[in-house]
Amino acid sequence: MSSTSRPWMPAASRTRRTVVSLMAVGALLGAAGAASADGTGKQPSGAPTGDGAKALCKRAPKIDQRIDRILERLNGDASQRGSIARLEERVSRAKSAGHTAVETYLNDRLTFRRSLVPTLQGRQKDLADVEKWCESNGEGADS
């Protein structure tokens, strides 16, 4: 029940009650924020203790599969959704139809998509080196 629905209560009492209620809500929110700065309820554990090699060694095969899958999609033919060839076809259709705004938008997407290929190939090469390191260092167990 809101304080405005109590006409029998003096205005000063309604105002005081509202202020007290707002202060209580503020205190609760402040206490919740003080408990955790990131909102998870967990306190930060401090500085990292290692370089994460063990976790990376564990995830490397899945990362490699993901990169392979993305490169396969990007290098697919025009029937493959997400491929460079399909986007090139869409750009040429927009250009022939005279849709300059659409052509510009799609061309920017095409430029970005083309830039992904060498980036992913570089990551794939780096990941292969990491996997070799993991094999020779006990899957990063020393870290």
Rank of each mutant, 00 (worst) to 15 (best):
D142E: 15
N75R: 13
D129V: 07
P10S: 07
S136Y: 05
Y105D: 15
G50C: 10
A128T: 11
S83A: 11
E139H: 09
A27C: 08
N137V: 01
A24P: 00
S2P: 06
G98E: 13
Q43C: 03
A97D: 14
A85M: 04
R109G: 13
A78E: 15
S2K: 03
V25F: 04
N107A: 13
G138F: 04
K58F: 10
A101P: 05
T111L: 01
H99S: 12
C134F: 03
R93N: 14
P61T: 04
S13R: 10
G82I: 02
A34W: 07
K42Q: 15
R90S: 15
R86S: 13
S45F: 03
M9Y: 02
R123M: 14
L56V: 08
R59C: 04
T4C: 10
T119W: 06
R14E: 10
P48L: 03
E89T: 13
S92C: 02
E131Q: 15
A141K: 12
E72W: 03
M23L: 14
V20P: 00
S79H: 02
E131I: 12
G30R: 03
T40N: 09
Q43M: 05
R14K: 13
D51Y: 08
A24V: 05
A85Q: 06
G140F: 07
A47G: 08
S36P: 06
L22A: 11
W133M: 10
L29A: 08
P44H: 06
A141G: 10
I63A: 13
W133F: 14
L127S: 06
K58W: 02
V91R: 00
A24Q: 09
L56R: 05
S21Q: 10
A85C: 04
T104Y: 09
D77N: 15
T49N: 06
Q124F: 05
S45L: 13
M9R: 07
D68P: 04
F112G: 14
V91W: 02
C134S: 05
D126V: 07
R69L: 12
D68Q: 13
E89I: 02
L29K: 01
G46V: 03
P7L: 03
G46E: 10
S83K: 02
A35L: 11
L29I: 04
R6E: 12
S83P: 09
P7D: 08
F112E: 15
A97R: 09
E103A: 15
A128G: 13
V117L: 02
K125P: 02
K95G: 11
M9T: 08
S36W: 01
L110R: 06
V91M: 00
E72K: 09
A11E: 15
R16W: 10
R123I: 01
E135N: 12
E139N: 14
G30Q: 03
S5C: 08
P7R: 02
A128E: 12
M23H: 01
A37W: 00
L71P: 08
A31F: 10
G122R: 11
C57N: 11
G98K: 06
S83R: 00
S92R: 12
P7C: 00
G98N: 12
E88F: 09
R69Y: 12
E72T: 14
D77G: 15
A31W: 05
S136C: 01
R66A: 15
G39N: 01
G39A: 05
L87I: 09
A78F: 01
G122C: 05
E88T: 10
S13G: 05
M1W: 07
H99C: 00
K95I: 11
G26V: 08
